[in-house]
Design a protein around this nucleic acid. Structure first.
Length: 421
RNA sequence: GCCGGGGUGGGGUAAUGGUAUCCUUGGGGACUGUGGAUCCCUUGACCCGGGUUCGAUUCCCGGUCCCGGCCCCA
């Protein structure tokens, strides 16, 4: 037996029905917001990702040399590919350019709850601006995607890198040191931060100001505590616009740095508290990447949702839609009725009704048992009597109620019955 | 990379230093127009490798995978 690779999963029909339901709900919301789908390669030149995130991430990527000795990597995320695509081919499209994507990503990490080596993301990028209404559009899209899946229990935290970045970079000339400080702030490791400040002879006064800014969090009322006037005005307008979109209950959290150098303004994260250690289901913010890949500088705002974690969170909320393989199962009562059964099945299928028919040459009772065990809603029984009157018997598998209907109207009758339930 | 807990048919389980229990599921049959029942038959398992032993599924070591946590999280 061949084992499945570590950190990967197989999904059966019932799992996929649930996953696709969540995915399709989110796709619909993206389209409703005017975002168009893009697909980019599953693997890229590994340079694309190291340019963005540094050489260190090679350890956490699936990297390999292809037969032409090019260094490739399975994508660990999709934003870089989308921006590469934009810079290469889409940069002359009218702005704002609104793109979304769905796909698998790969990271060589140790699997645990909600963390896999192959996982699935849906994300969106709005290319062209970083003003408050753009941020609101993107956050609102993110929240509505999650709501559309049926998820109820999640927390939106919104921050702005500008506040900390400008403070730290203005006070610390050394860029490396500054980004180290930002990293520790992101981790909320204030003891380590204190030690760093001490060893590098930085003033305790700055430390206090950093802590004050990073500790600025709370509901919309906390917006008044923001010192940086530009950040305050930006976030105030953002929160107001979000409210117009019906997105309230967002938390302000200026401690979010998202561990990255390339975010430039608003950053946001969404957690599903019912999940375990890996409870973040979404991360995003505004950034500039295009010039890194050789394009004109342009602001983008985007996010990525971890589909796997959304599905886990839905399960934690006991949201498990019923899965039905088929709506109708055509049952011949005896062997010489099988051809009639195929004709009826064909008619139902042509009408788009999810239909199964006996292929095992089983007896009527075994067929009914099979139809019940796979959760079919209606058995369509065809036999000598039905054929004689050009009819079929529809049996509701839950109630046992049966009706004889003309074969010519079987589609309409079934649709009527299904709509009535 | 590190730590803890696990690994018996497809799923769920029991026992055991002498190759394995029960339930469920799958396949078939009886039955023959509602038995979606009932009865019968049947397929199918000790994660992998090494060690100890006359003999290992059981004990020991290593690996692997799963579950959870740390680190990390673009």
């Amino acid at each position: 037996m061949i084992q499945r690779p570590r950190g990967t999963r197989d999904f059966g029909p019932a799992d996929m029905a649930r996953r696709r339901a969540a995915e399709n709900a989110m796709r619909e919301v993206c389209h409703a917001h005017g975002f168009g789908e893009v697909v980019t390669p599953t693997f890229e030149l590994s340079e694309l990702f190291t340019m963005r995130s540094g050489q260190a991430i090679v350890d956490e990527m699936y990297v390999f040399n292809d037969k032409g000795d090019r260094e490739m990597a399975l994508r660990p995320e999709i934003t870089a590919s989308v921006i590469r695509f934009y810079v290469n081919d889409l940069s002359t499209l009218p702005k704002p350019l609104k793109l979304y994507y769905v796909g698998s990503c790969y990271r060589y990490e140790n699997p645990q709850s909600g963390r896999y080596r192959e996982f699935y993301q849906i994300g969106a990028e709005l290319i062209g601006n970083d003003n408050p209404e753009t941020d609101a559009e993107v956050i609102s899209l993110a929240v509505k995607c999650l709501r559309a899946t049926g998820l109820q229990d999640f927390e939106v935290r919104i921050g702005h890198i500008g506040a900390l970045k400008s403070l730290v970079q203005a006070e610390i000339g050394d860029r490396t040191l500054a980004s180290e400080v930002l990293r520790l702030i992101d981790k909320a490791e204030f003891e380590a931060l204190g030690r760093l400040f001490e060893s590098r002879g930085l003033s305790g006064d700055l430390m206090g100001r950093v802590r004050a800014v990073a500790g600025t969090k709370g509901g919309a009322e906390a917006l008044d505590d923001i010192e940086d006037p530009e950040v305050k005005a930006h976030l105030k307008e953002l929160f107001e616009t979000l409210s117009l979109y019906g997105v309230d209950d967002c938390q302000l959290d200026l401690g979010i740095v998202r561990g990255l150098d390339y975010y430039t303004g608003m950053v946001f994260e969404i957690d599903a508290p019912r999940l375990g250690a890996e409870k973040q289901v979404l991360g995003g913010g505004s950034y500039t990447l295009s010039e890194l890949f050789g394009g004109e500088p342009v602001f983008s705002t985007g996010f990525a949702i971890g589909i796997d974690r959304v599905v886990l969170a839905l399960e934690a909320e006991d949201f498990r839609p019923e899965y039905r393989q088929c709506d109708a199962f055509v049952v011949p009562t005896e062997d010489n009725m099988r051809k009639y059964a195929f004709a009826i099945a064909s008619k139902l299928r042509a009408a788009g009704i999810h239909t199964d028919v006996d292929l095992m040459r089983r007896s009527m009772s075994k067929n009914l048992k099979y139809a019940a065990s796979v959760g079919t809603r209606y058995a369509v029984i065809v036999g000598r009597d039905e054929m004689a009157s050009r009819s079929v018997t529809l049996r509701d598998m839950d109630t046992g109620e049966q009706t004889l209907v003309k074969a010519d109207f079987v589609v309409e009758e079934l649709e009527k019955l299904m709509a009535g339930r």
